[in-house]
Design a protein around this nucleic acid. Structure first.
Lengths: 267, 267
DNA sequence: CGTAGCCTTGACCGCCCTCAAATTATGTGG
DNA sequence: CCACATAATTTGAGGGCGGTCAAGGCTACG
């Protein structure tokens, strides 16, 4: 049930055929349930296979001396982790659940076997890997080049679109059950400064994060602050919300359309 | 000739069989030559195939408003770029030559065809992709978590080991024909501050960068400053140089063993 | 209803940025 | 080989973004 929807998300992101999706489903274990903060994979170990997220949020992170951590990526329903094991690489980082989770496992032998039978599956995992790499490049820009405000705006744009693509967003809100410390660790900011930045964004009427719910009040301002261009996320069938106040009245080009054009001024 | 040595590097990093390596070589174009600073791939375009570096250094980067840039990765001989095209993804960043280069091209149709014939080739590219991802995670730590001094030390460790693995390092030196501005753009520092950091490292007798040559004077101090653990680079048949003064006399544990332990003090 | 975690705000500090200028490579034409 | 132009390196002075330390308020949950 949840398995099917998550596998459909995976299939879309990996551009799998129906046959390939079904083949993966047939070797995917039923859901294992984990509690929040449960460690899923630890630095140094080799994953037993590819995990598929059915429900909940996880993160990749590096533990740092002093109890701090750097979060490298958030993993949402439909995302996978453990790909390194398919190519015999141990984990260079760790993964933990940030919320209660349901996770499926595709044993790495099955992945390899299916990869030989269905080249599209191998390509699909490469595609997922490449899209994650593109996201991580944006995170490097978040940490190295953007101000705290811009970085937070960019992160909100990314997460909202990814939640929306996973069918987990309302009109202009989505559940984002992360603490401010979690967000701070993603943006390499102190919790204190992340709080100040969040307050600033709230007072500006751009976006709020309350009780684990992200609300985008002024999508255009958010996108402008982040200079957000969604092209790097792949061709998601979603877009940032239109302005709620005057929703649907003025037929002007939407955010996604604008960036679609800008993203391919090539060729 | 240079083609063979570069393809051997690629084959090792991707863990290709001899047959797979030969198959790739057979569809790889002879070397194209580029001058320094030549743009190889631009944001938005789709690469014609997978490029293999025979000679020279390139970088992935994002151009930023204001003429600045963030470098995401350095690409050395034996490295590839253009993998995104194999899975029909346009470039989310750009790539340019940093030195004169010789580059081979494997058309993306050939890559896909060989991927179906040789599953090991698909796996190999996934492996390369995963190793690049691990490197980029360390870069996020460089920019977000490490001081300028620590980050520069870590970058030097990474580059030296990768040059060494490519057969491009002497005992404790290697050619590193990058300007201080190039390094600054990799570490998200200003050129001014990178210079100060470099001077500090030089005056501490740890490492110097002069006339395009990196010299590691005190490998232990460098490794300690960076808290460097080479595991993430894959199983390279190399290591940081031993202390020149007392080389090879004392059989004590090497860096790899030490930091393996330290890296997992969490949970 | 108490305790613990999370959020919020204030005060102060430091790493790194910006601006500016001097000095040293690098390269180019005569 | 030299004169000149350009780029790269080096050093100084001053400022700001974000860190750290600290304290108080809010919320959740046993």
């Amino acid at each position: 049930m949840l398995v099917r929807t998550a596998m459909s998300l995976l299939a879309r992101n990996a551009q799998l055929s129906v046959a390939e999706q079904l083949a993966l489903e047939s070797v995917c274990s039923s859901a294992r349930r984990y509690v929040a903060r449960h460690p899923l994979l630890r630095t140094g170990e080799t994953a037993p296979g590819v995990f598929v997220i059915f429900r909940g949020i996880a993160c990749r992170f590096s533990a740092l001396p002093g109890g701090h951590a750097q979060i490298h990526a958030y993993l949402l329903p439909g995302d996978v982790f453990g790909l390194r094991a398919v190519v015999d690489l141990p984990m260079d980082h760790s993964i933990r659940a940030m919320t209660p989770m349901d996770v499926g496992l595709i044993p790495r032998e099955s992945v390899r076997a299916l990869g030989e039978q269905f080249p599209g599956i191998s390509n699909g995992f490469l595609r997922l890997s490449q899209t994650e790499a593109a996201i991580s490049r944006q995170w490097l820009l978040n940490v190295g080049q953007r101000s705290a405000f811009e970085a937070l705006a960019h992160l909100f744009c990314e997460l909202f679109l990814r939640f929306q693509a996973a069918g987990l967003a309302e009109q202009n809100t989505c559940a984002l059950p992360l603490t401010q410390t979690d967000l701070a660790e993603a943006l390499a900011l102190s919790p204190v400064h992340l709080n100040r930045t969040l307050m600033k964004m709230r007072r500006a009427g751009i976006a709020t994060l309350t009780k684990g719910k992200l609300s985008i009040l002024d999508p255009e301002a958010l996108r402008d602050a982040a200079r957000f261009d969604p092209g790097y996320l792949g061709e998601l069938p979603v877009r940032l919300p239109t302005v709620p106040s005057e929703s649907g009245t003025s037929p002007r080009p939407d955010a996604f359309g604008i960036h679609r054009e800008a993203a391919r001024m090539h060729r």
